[in-house]
Design a protein around this nucleic acid. Sequence first.
DNA 1: ATAAGATTCAAACGAACGTTTAATTGATTG
DNA 2: CAATCAATTAAACGTTCGTTTGAATCTTAT
Lengths: 240, 240
Amino acid sequence: MDAKVIAIGTVRGAAATKERILDTAEALFMEHGFEATGLRSITAAAGVNLAAVNYHFGTKEELFQAVLTRRLDPMNQERVALLDEMERKSAPHPLTCDRILMALFVPALRLARDPARGGKNFLRLLGRAYADPAPFIRHFLSEQYALTIARFKAAFGRALPHLPKKELSWRLHFIMGALSYTLSGTDAHKIISELSPREANNDEILLRRLAPFLLAGLNAPLPDLTEVTREVDSALTRKR
Amino acid sequence: MDAKVIAIGTVRGAAATKERILDTAEALFMEHGFEATGLRSITAAAGVNLAAVNYHFGTKEELFQAVLTRRLDPMNQERVALLDEMERKSAPHPLTCDRILMALFVPALRLARDPARGGKNFLRLLGRAYADPAPFIRHFLSEQYALTIARFKAAFGRALPHLPKKELSWRLHFIMGALSYTLSGTDAHKIISELSPREANNDEILLRRLAPFLLAGLNAPLPDLTEVTREVDSALTRKR
DNA sequence: ATAAGATTCAAACGAACGTTTAATTGATTG
DNA sequence: CAATCAATTAAACGTTCGTTTGAATCTTAT
């Protein structure tokens, strides 16, 4: 940012191409996925030379990580900061689940609202990345999210003291699943456009419907595994 | 199956290589995704000639569709059949949500239990396919699922008459999201192995924890959008 | 047994991939 | 002005991709 203003020469041009590459890669990775997107497509669409990617980012994988980090890092910091502030205000009472969910969703909404920070495109790219089989993506994401998830798991643990930690881990997993799938869904955006085409921000409507759904799931009664097991078993073995 | 026993000549050899290709492709597609899996990897691992894929299936895309159809078609038929039978038995009362969810999950569990029908691998492949950006995969899946989803949506509609259809569409979408993400998750299988390594079938434990979670979400109270909106808006604008 | 057909095989096709190289351009600094 | 360094460029690197070809091998049927 500062460098762009102060030095008008080399740095500005370099920073400009770097950002143009990041923006274009973000869009194309979202549309076609990591493997199916060629460096030649990216550089051509960005109007830069093919070698520029390797010069500025090293490899294609590093470019992908740079695309993710640029948005993900600030968003997760915002999430934790929001959670911290909420907990401070409500002390000594623990936060309720709906407010913790808010701390999880609001920064994502902010990002989706702001076109300058990637807007809706990035959330979809993020959802895609969550389901990508590539090992380096999975490693990268779990590293990026490890601290944030642990922080929120602790908060949920205080809000749901009766819930065994094992069960809480599962439900958090389900939450992240529904969230990432919802964000990545081409279907979801299509559904929105069909059902309520005049609304302002699609991702916003989406997350506001998702939150109550997940909140209810979090507060669900503990599954009586033995009983359910018998019933399902009978269904499983009956028509065998 | 029958052809393999009856005709001992050409058919056995041809059917054998076809199945070997399908099995190997299923495993490799699951591990690396569609784009990242080469035909040479598949044919080498299957012990067949490279050209065998194009000879038996036409193109790589058609091979992928064949891999999916082989398991998906029977499973969806089983789902609808189970739902039909349940509705017939409980007539004239409509089914409760938990039983409809059972009709959705049990066939998937049966598939996961049966190694001869793909076992756990296929469910993970299916989850991956759901998140794949490739247009032909999305088209194929939505075609394959259109009837089944419509059938279950109608059943849920009868079970939740107070729920607006729009809201029901959303919640079904969330359910499919959590389901596919859960099935595809490498993380999920790791969590299971760590938490309860001695259990028999991983996918079974998984779905039995997911069902109550989703059931609660289905029965969640309608979101008071206006109220929630104000609260979230304040959070969004406060720190801007 | 022999013709016909189905399947397998090795080899090659052109295209696209990510990455590297070496030369050139441009601006900054001593 | 000259030297220096970062940035851009065109070109080529070697590899891998999905697909096709035509001959060879095997099975089925006359």
